[in-house]
């Protein structure tokens, strides 16, 4: 359709207006993070002010922001690495050695995503408590690995399918073992796909806010739970909330911008390409 240059003047105007409106809350949060707490609630709202970094300092010194950030990093990287280790061999087998059951296995994996978390809140909470995994990073790593595994398998499967079969077969003729074939031929070819799969898994783990709120209290609490602690009503804290929030979303915002395309593939299970 319309990749043709349009001559209607209002289209760029409307496009930019919509973009700015949708982005405005993020922009407003970002500039509020450089205000003093007094300026943050000033009437009328200030767009121009003398910026300060005091909130960024205060969030770290008073609330040990970096402990929570470190939890987020460890948990999302841990879950992503673990699910890649599980998914790559599975996707390899399913895309290059499909059997009659491959299709139903894939669909069944996706269907595990449909189980609403809240339906198993109690059993998971009790299991975590009994095994001592409540409020531990390992507990969340296990859960996020399992939550994201179907999407990760699916995405890597679809990237492997795009690798020309001839290349692998040629290599097999030369006597390469399964392991050599996977590590030396397939992975380098599928690396961009695996990279964007990893990004999506990190984004989903970083932003997950059901299990993190219900299964952690302090020790393993990631940023989602830390930000939630600002919901208590007392005190003026908007500038600090903004500073903490800006730091919490910045890396993921960038990852999201980088991986928009693959995101569609992963989140719709390939139903929209």
């Amino acid at each position: 359709m319309a990749t043709k240059q349009s001559h209607r003047w209002w289209i760029p105007l409307l496009g930019w207006l919509v973009a700015c409106l949708l982005f405005f809350p993020i922009f407003w949060m970002f500039i509020t993070s450089f205000k003093t707490e007094v300026a943050a609630v000033a009437t009328p709202p200030q767009l121009f002010f003398r910026p300060t970094l005091e909130n960024y300092v205060a969030v770290q010194t008073r609330a040990s922001y970096f402990n929570f950030a470190w939890n987020s990093v460890v948990i999302s990287l841990g879950a992503t690495i673990l699910s890649l280790l599980l998914a790559i061999p599975a996707a390899y087998a399913m895309s290059f050695f499909p059997t009659k059951r491959t299709k139903s296995t894939l669909l069944w994996m996706l269907s595990t995503k449909m189980l609403p978390a809240v339906g198993v809140l109690v059993p998971i909470y009790i299991l975590a408590r009994e095994t001592g995994l409540l409020d531990t990073r390992i507990g969340l790593v296990i859960i996020y690995t399992l939550i994201n595994l179907p999407i990760v398998v699916w995405m890597i499967y679809s990237f492997f399918k795009e690798v020309p079969k001839e290349i692998l077969e040629a290599d097999r003729m030369d006597g390469a073992s399964t392991y050599q074939e996977l590590v030396h031929v397939l992975l380098p070819l599928a690396l961009p796909g695996i990279f964007s799969t990893a990004l999506l898994s990190i984004i989903l783990s970083w932003n997950e806010a059901f299990w993190s709120l219900n299964l952690t209290t302090f020790d393993a609490a990631p940023l989602t739970a830390f930000i939630a602690s600002f919901s208590s009503p007392q005190g003026l804290f908007w500038a600090k909330l903004s500073a903490a929030s800006s730091m919490a979303i910045a890396p993921i915002l960038i990852f999201g911008w980088v991986s928009q395309r693959q995101l569609v593939r992963g989140l719709t299970f390939g139903a929209v390409k």
Partner: peptide, 8 residues
């Protein structure tokens, strides 16, 4: 962008 902002 709003889609990448954590819900909390």
């Amino acid at each position: 962008s709003p889609f990448f902002v954590m819900p909390t």
